[in-house]
């Protein structure tokens, strides 16, 4: 239990660092901004209590916001994503039964389950994020295009991260 908490705290710190100092400095024509930090919310254990899920997502978004100087937009969208997570988990049918100790990962629940789970939650997060950022509905389709492209790249990074740390996450 304590090791699980520890691993999640380390993951939190690494993802915030990656986001603020590396991913934010990569830009490809302004349309592609992957927000890999949401990987933290995706990977929180199933048995995480609701309050902890919401509070840790709040702290995550808040950390990103303070570093990027964006006021509250990451906080609001991260909290929304955390709130949707239990609903999404309930909504997606899984071939395997949920067992205690299972983690939301490709190794435990299969590619298709993890893919749809991540896709829906990333879309929710990015939709909220990009529309709160511009705070207007003019350029609606332009913003939507940015949501779709960025979600694709975030998802791609999430899947790559899953395969990179496949072994490590299988053991813990």
């Amino acid at each position: 239990m304590t090791s699980k908490v520890f691993i999640n705290i380390i993951r939190f710190l690494i993802l915030v660092f990656l986001q603020v100092f590396i991913l934010e400095n990569i830009n490809l024509r302004g349309y592609i901004n992957p927000y890999l930090y949401v990987y933290f919310i995706l990977l929180l254990p199933f048995e995480t209590p609701g309050w902890l899920l919401l509070i840790s997502s709040f702290v995550l978004g808040f950390s990103i916001d303070t570093f990027l100087g964006t006021m509250g937009i990451h906080t609001a969208s991260s909290v929304l994503m955390a709130f949707s997570r239990p609903l999404v988990i309930k909504a997606i049918p899984s071939r395997k039964d949920f067992e205690p100790g299972m983690k939301p990962s490709i190794s435990d629940l299969g590619f298709l389950w993890f893919f749809s789970y991540s896709l829906i939650l990333i879309l929710i997060h990015h939709l909220a994020l990009f529309y709160i950022e511009v705070f207007r509905f003019t350029d609606f389709f332009n913003t939507f295009l940015r949501v779709v492209i960025s979600s694709f790249f975030t998802l791609l990074l999430v899947i790559i991260a899953q395969y990179l740390f496949f072994k490590a996450s299988g053991k813990n």
């Binding site: 609701g50 509070i55 006021m71 509250g72 909290v79």
Partner: peptide, 28 residues
């Protein structure tokens, strides 16, 4: 409580989004 905590946190988050210049300066 899950829903109400969510609401509370979103209200806090949006108060950051919508803060005025003075509040933003204090915050920073």
């Amino acid at each position: 409580y899950f829903f109400f905590l969510f609401l509370l946190l979103e209200v806090i988050a949006f108060s950051f989004v919508l803060q005025n210049n003075f509040q933003r300066a204090t915050f920073l």
